[in-house]
Design a protein around this nucleic acid. Sequence first.
DNA 1: CGGGCATTCAATAGATTTATTGAATAGATA
DNA 2: TATCTATTCAATAAATCTATTGAATGCCCG
Lengths: 223, 223
Amino acid sequence: MKTAARKFKDTIYQELSKTAKALGNPHRMEIIDLLAQGPFTVETIARYTGMTIANTSQHLQVLKNAQLVAINRKGNHIYYQLTGENVYATWTSLRELGMAHNAEVKKAIDDYRKGYHNGTAVTAAELLEKVHAGNAIVLDVRPEDEYHRGHIHNAISIPLDQLEKRIRELSKKQEIVAYCRGSLCMLVEEAVALLTQHGYKARKFDDGYMDWALKGYPTAMTI
Amino acid sequence: MKTAARKFKDTIYQELSKTAKALGNPHRMEIIDLLAQGPFTVETIARYTGMTIANTSQHLQVLKNAQLVAINRKGNHIYYQLTGENVYATWTSLRELGMAHNAEVKKAIDDYRKGYHNGTAVTAAELLEKVHAGNAIVLDVRPEDEYHRGHIHNAISIPLDQLEKRIRELSKKQEIVAYCRGSLCMLVEEAVALLTQHGYKARKFDDGYMDWALKGYPTAMTI
DNA sequence: CGGGCATTCAATAGATTTATTGAATAGATA
DNA sequence: TATCTATTCAATAAATCTATTGAATGCCCG
């Protein structure tokens, strides 16, 4: 026979583990990571993650049941978004833990970054100084709507997929510091490689926008 | 064909989800919660969680493979312990998230508390007043070492497992406000029930020490 | 060296999770 | 009202996770 205390604990841990289970799938982790940038439709999420629509929807239902995401109808589309900042905070916590304890993760990131030969990254403190001094072009290479929702103060937006054809908008004389979402987002690597290749003085800020914003550093948004 | 970027993401999310998966089981969550108190043997963990030894061992292997716990031989026993503070930090983050978003959890805690018929809890503001006025005994029922690391200003320490035999140290005339860790810790409920049963005027402060300290209310520590 | 004890391993059946498929639904638009 | 479109549901087979059992391992101590 179980004591009341045992039953209580069983319930609590059972319920709490549901949250962790919902996060414990690679596709759903990628979805959380993506939704941290803002609300997206099922179709967009599916395209980003390379899943079928039906499969994506199914994973979104799991996240919704665990109260990690919520929906928001707009016209013919349904936008999914995180239910709160604490969802992203927990995902960050898990990511940090994984990155600290899992050698495979470290190796994969290292290998991928090394493949680009993009030199060392600018630190947040260095970038803050550059932003204040105004002696560097800060370049946001994320998709444009993510830029509009929030970006580093004084940054300009050229999404990666437009960078090649719009590259003349940039100056070869000033240093360019490019950034994207951060941590696991590798848009910035491709951007810096492209810029360097075209003779620009480009460096990367690979902490990304989320980290910058979380530090309370200056941001802006356009409406 | 998958792009290099897609392969990279697959690897990363696959690996990161392993950590979340390891945490995504009620038994393993309880083990993590227990190991936060310090190292324990398999047998102790099994007894505490109500599992068989073999099953406990199996879950511990899962946690070990995910690098969340490590072993430490001592004589004939093997002690399991968390591999770092960040493991507990992540578990805390998950717990907070679950408690914030999961109605079942809130309800279970509520119901369990109600089962003790310990009356209503003292709010933090009320307790603050009582502490200032000095017209209540503030009683810390956590294990003694936790009391020493930090406690509510002017609280006295009688760990729950010593309360029955040391109960005469308390006065029946003054109101007693007991507290423990908070959230999932139910020591305080048992303490108040015991005190009431012995004719003391006891109430509970069930936010617990962590909440009190986080509010910036007065605390003290002994060395 | 050998008995005893704590822990792990291996096998298995039952439960849960996952991706895929094609059909169903619910809002918007006309 | 009928049609269109984005999204969800339902069914299924394959994969993975879980608890249980009993046997195997490895370490201590006499």
